[in-house]
Amino acid sequence: MISLVRRFPAATFAVCLGFAAMTGCGGGAGGSKPQASSKPRIIFVTNSNADWWTAVEKGMKDAAAELNVDAEMRRNEGSVQGQIRILKDVLSLPDVEGVAVSVIEAKAEGVASAMRELRKAGKIVIAIDSDGAADSREAYIGTDNRAAGRIAGKVAAALRPKGGPVVVFVGSKEAANAIDRRESFFAGAGDAFTELETFTDGGDKNRAAVNVRTAITKYPEMGVMLGIWSYNAPAIAQEINKFAELRAKVTVITFDLDERAVDQLANGWIDATVCQNPYDIGFKGVKLLKAKIQKDQKTINEMLPGGATTIETGVRVILPKADSRVKVDNVMTIEEMKKWLTSKGLKSS
């Protein structure tokens, strides 16, 4: 080894230099310190690559243009390890001053630890969409998923007063938003609704469709199909629509509004979807990060009054058409929602 170094000093130097650059040499254990600039650089890290994130990205880009911020979205493919890798990559970028993370699994210590490392390195870290450990982020922007779940439960109870057995579809059962939505759905719906099974697909859309087909044959007695993640909605609607008799007795409740689900909802293949405001999450995420990076206390106080750490972006319940049975706040028909989407230049929400 020593003789190699002696024979090829220039190559050895180049290799060392490359290694130092890759590992962020000189930045200490906590990674590189951010370099303050007039146009702060921030990164959004997603939990999956669902269509839903396109609307967050639009809000993020609009805010970045308006507030003079350099914002970028890095999409995780749906695994804990993938998200940790992205967070570690961000740690080695000295010019990144703020990070917004949709935490893929609430109990994944690796993700929480990577977020803490980012904070130690002087970067501002917030959680968006799906919250993480309280000490791993400075604030959370998104839907109160517990409230969203309860509203979905109430909508199910309104559309189906006698209740029924529920089959749940989700990418990962361990994601904070999945836990919150699923648990509070049953709390909101009441005792007449019981869970048959939760099918997970790991973010694989082909598997999501297979799970729906399996549920259709396995549980002919099911009364409700509940799609927790946005892409579960089109997977459910596509299949259930093939069975007129089953469709007539099953209530389909979903979350968010995937691009493909817009027409499916309009066609009545989905009974209701509880829709977050991803555009707002993206916009407010940039605004808060910039305010925190530049220590703009006035904006921080406006966004987080009284030292709060959560910004609630609210939910809307979207129905195929007006339905007097559904008595919750913020109800819209799909036609009204389409007009809103067009006004924001969006195809999904």
Partner: peptide
């Protein structure tokens, strides 16, 4: 075929 089946081209397909 998978793109046809899911109705999407997706950089995260087939992991």
């Amino acid at each position: 075929l998978f793109a046809g089946s899911t109705g999407q081209g997706d950089g995260n397909l087939g992991i």
